[in-house]
């Protein structure tokens, strides 16, 4: 029998998520070799960026960043990036094209929850692997050590989770455009390309031309990578900076949540009108 009532609904929800995450985790376990390769692929870009900046900073600090600061920054990028990956647009596109969206739409749970569970099941273990690698590296390489400050680390975790949520909703909402176009994944790639600069992947934002960094501040990009990394590595120090950062994250989370709901209801309607 279906458990009725609000308390029952929460319990059902919890059960649904537990099972969705379990299934996702078991499937990931089957693909562990492939996932290991994706991990390698995910860390090469920050390593190469670090290599270049390390060379550039040979003569001294660049824009306030010493070699050590660069090392800590890019290790942070590798970790936060792993926790904020966004691949759902490709799944949505494939499901709509191959008719696998249909059974997801006739189940008593919105498709987004399967995606959220999938994300958590994947990112939890893999981010932990990167974190472990960082800890091991810091034993042999003093440059990447970060002082142990539980308070700041806790805040960093919050910032990373918020960043992951923003980027997830951003990717999912853009991916839902597949209800209308076959080029939804191209849009996601376009945003990704821009984010290389504006989110601080290629270089810390303070090293960008001032006008570019200024533009970045108006968009969500800094809040999905630069801010969490800076909290983690201790670049964010004053209360004002913390407040601005977290406020920005919450605002953009709300914006992308609304955009997701908008695209989902419109998209669902469009799908119901013209089919797959």
């Amino acid at each position: 029998m279906i458990r009725a009532g609000a308390r029952g609904a929460v319990a059902v929800f919890r059960d649904q998520y537990a099972e969705l995450m379990r299934s996702a985790f078991l499937i990931d376990l089957q693909y562990r070799a492939s996932i290991a390769i994706w991990l390698i692929w995910g860390i090469t870009e920050p390593i190469i960026s670090l290599g270049i900046w390390w060379t550039i900073a040979a003569a001294g600090a660049v824009g306030g960043y010493s070699r050590e600061a660069f090392a800590q920054y890019f290790f942070g990028v590798a970790l936060v990036n792993q926790a904020t990956l966004s691949w759902d647009a490709w799944n949505i596109d494939r499901w709509i094209r191959e008719g696998e969206m249909n059974y997801r739409l006739t189940r008593p749970i919105a498709p987004i929850h399967e995606a959220i569970a999938d994300n958590i099941a994947y990112k939890g273990p893999t981010a932990t692997i990167i974190l472990t690698a960082w800890i091991v590296a810091s034993v042999f390489w003093p440059a990447v050590r970060i002082p142990f400050e539980p308070g700041r680390w806790a805040l960093a975790i919050v910032a990373i989770v918020l960043a992951a949520a923003i980027r997830f909703l951003n990717g999912y909402a853009t991916g839902l455009l597949a209800f209308w176009t076959t080029r939804a994944t191209a849009l996601v790639e376009l945003q990704f390309g821009i984010s290389l600069f504006l989110s601080g992947r290629i270089a810390p934002l303070s090293l960008l031309p001032p006008r570019v960094a200024h533009v970045a501040g108006y968009l969500w990009f800094p809040y999905v990578l630069s801010f969490p990394v800076q909290v983690l590595t201790g670049t964010v120090t004053t209360t004002a900076q913390y407040v601005r950062g977290f406020a920005g994250q919450l605002i953009w989370l709300a914006i992308w949540l609304m955009l997701y709901l908008l695209v989902w209801t419109r998209g669902r309607r469009h799908y119901g009108a013209v089919g797959g």
Binding site: T44, I52, T55
Partner: peptide, 27 residues
């Protein structure tokens, strides 16, 4: 069972974007 062997190449090829001398010793 590994489906993404090509991703290994993509990862490594990224290093070819810049001249060899641009990298520090270990890399």
């Amino acid at each position: 069972a590994v489906e993404n062997l090509a991703a290994l190449f993509d990862a490594l090829f990224e290093a070819a974007r810049y001249p060899v001398s641009a990298y520090p010793g270990a890399l």
